[in-house]
C-alpha cells in the first residue's frame, strides 16, 4: 500500500518536471493550410466575392483615409506612397524598425508614419480608422505568398514568439501548439480547429460582426485558455506575430478574410 502511494507521488513529481517541455512537431511547409480551407462553402463564397465580403467596406474607408491629409499642413499617406507601391508590405510584416530598434507590426508601422511624417497622434488600436488603413494596405498584398524577411535582427523576437506559442499558459495550461500544431482539423466543441495562420488580418469575423486585428483574435484564444492577454504592440504580441507569419509562409495573404 505504502509503496503504491510513494510511486503515486513520484509520478506526480515526474509529471511536474515534464509538463513544461513536450515537443510538438511544427507543421511542414507542404501541409500548411489556411483556415479558409475548413470553412463552410457559404463563408468561403462570402470571402471570395468583393461585393459580398463585408471587409471590403473597411478597405474602401481605408482608401479614403489614405488619400486624405490628416490636417491641412500634413501630407496624406498618398503623397509619399504611390498607388500600388505598398504591394508586398503586408506579406513581410512585422519588420525591424531601425529608429525604434525593435520589430513593428503593420498597425505599428502605420502609426509610426503618422507620428514621423504627418505630425499626427497614433490611431487607437482596434479603432475603425486604423483597422481601415491596415485593411487597405494589406489588401494590396492579397494573393502574394507570406514572405518573412530573413533580417537577423528579427531572429531573437521570432524565437521568443515560438517559445510562447509552445508554452502552456493560463488556468487551463493549454499551449497554442497543443491546439494548432497537434490537433488542427479536430473540433473544440462544434468549432473546427484551424492551423491558426494569420493570413487574412484584419479580417471580418461573423462572431464579431465586424473587422478585427490579429491581436484581437489572439485575445480570443487567450481568453479561451483563461490566460492574461498580451497588450497590442507589446514585445510578446509582436514576437508571437513574427513567429506566426514564419509558421504560415508561404500561404497567400487573404486580407480581408472572412471567418466564422
Amino acid at each position: 500500500m505504502r509503496g503504491l502511494a510513494v510511486s503515486g507521488v513520484l509520478l506526480l513529481l515526474a509529471g511536474l518536471a515534464a509538463a513544461q517541455e513536450i515537443p510538438i512537431q511544427e507543421i511542414p511547409v507542404s501541409e500548411r493550410r489556411s483556415g479558409l480551407d475548413q470553412m463552410a462553402p457559404e463563408t468561403r463564397a462570402m470571402q471570395a466575392d468583393d461585393a459580398a465580403n463585408p471587409g471590403m467596406l473597411w478597405v474602401g474607408d481605408g482608401a479614403d483615409l489614405f488619400a486624405r491629409a490628416p490636417s491641412p499642413e500634413a501630407p496624406a499617406c498618398a503623397a509619399c506612397h504611390e498607388t500600388g507601391a505598398l504591394r508586398g508590405v503586408a506579406a513581410r510584416y512585422p519588420a525591424w524598425d531601425t529608429a525604434e530598434a525593435r520589430p513593428i507590426d503593420l498597425e505599428g508601422r502605420i502609426n509610426l508614419c503618422r507620428s514621423r511624417h504627418q505630425g499626427a497622434a497614433p490611431l487607437p488600436r482596434e479603432g475603425r480608422d486604423l483597422l481601415a488603413l491596415t485593411a487597405f494596405v494589406a489588401n494590396q498584398s492579397r494573393g502574394l505568398p507570406i514572405a518573412p524577411p530573413a533580417d537577423p535582427r528579427l531572429a531573437p523576437a521570432r524565437a521568443a514568439g515560438r517559445a510562447l506559442f509552445e508554452r502552456p499558459l493560463g488556468q487551463l495550461r493549454f499551449s497554442c501548439a497543443g491546439c494548432h500544431d497537434a490537433n488542427w482539423g479536430r473540433h473544440l466543441g462544434a468549432a473546427p480547429i484551424p492551423q491558426g495562420h494569420p493570413t487574412g488580418y484584419p479580417l471580418y469575423r461573423l462572431e464579431w460582426q465586424g473587422l478585427g486585428s490579429l491581436q484581437r483574435r489572439l485575445r480570443n484564444c487567450l481568453a479561451g485558455m483563461r490566460a492574461e492577454p498580451f497588450a497590442p504592440d507589446s514585445p510578446e504580441a509582436t514576437a508571437l506575430a513574427l513567429y506566426l507569419m514564419q509558421r504560415a509562409a508561404p500561404l497567400p495573404v487573404e486580407t480581408p478574410a472572412v471567418r466564422p
Binding site: R167, G170, E228
Partner: peptide
C-alpha cells in the same frame, strides 16, 4: 499550482 500568466479572474 504550476499555471503561468493566468487571467485575472482565475
Amino acid at each position: 499550482a504550476g499555471a503561468e500568466r493566468v487571467g485575472a479572474a482565475w
